[in-house]
Amino acid sequence: MNDHNSTSSERKGTIRATRRAMLSAALMAPAVAGLAAAGPPGQPVLDMSQDRLQVFARLSAALTGVAAAKLAPAVDPIDVISDYFRFLADQMPDLFDRLLQHAQSVPVGTQPAAEADAILSSLESDTDPNVKFGARSIVLLWYLGAWYPPDGLKKIAEGSDRSALMNPARIVSAKAYTQGWIWQVMQAHPMGYTTLQFGYWGTNPAKTMIQLIGGGS
């Protein structure tokens, strides 16, 4: 499930070193990195470097309230963040880029809450009316693993009927459904996908929401 951060500082150090090493290797060998990320001939190369994914994680943390370290854990065999990055770059390339720029414009801070506030302020200052709905689509993607296109959200939010029901355009994948953060926010588990044990439902959840989604921001 989502909560698979390493708790061992020694292990974390190892992983960080590894990631730095990978990153520097990529910088030293741009041709190789470019080849690895290349799409079909004639398509622009999608930049999915660790830096770029970290910007996406910081943007997503500000939008969702889930800590960046939970969205993009140091050890991440599931790696749903890469799936979402690719998906958003495909579904709303320009809007996604614009949203990432807002996160990029805010310096990495020591206080996640302040950093999140700064990113949200930056987004709010954007005069493009579509930015708000692109941000909402990203939140719903992380929470539900489902795709609610920005124009659909806009149509309902700006329409006269606030009780109009909007169904998702699609579930992004089985992995996306089972990695939805709403289940952690409600201190439960994805319906049809639990790692809990018999009888757990008779007592209160072992972890608070903040323990599950990180931060405290």
Binding site: A113, L120, V139, Y148, I156, Q187
Partner: peptide, 28 residues
């Protein structure tokens, strides 16, 4: 997230559209 009120839970003159920690807390 989108300032709607299909569920009946997002009450008030204008349904709230929340982000970040405020959203997580409200949904919890």
């Amino acid at each position: 997230v989108n300032g709607q009120n299909v569920s009946g839970l997002n009450e008030g003159p204008t349904p709230k559209a929340l982000l970040g920690a405020n959203l997580a807390q409200a949904l919890n």
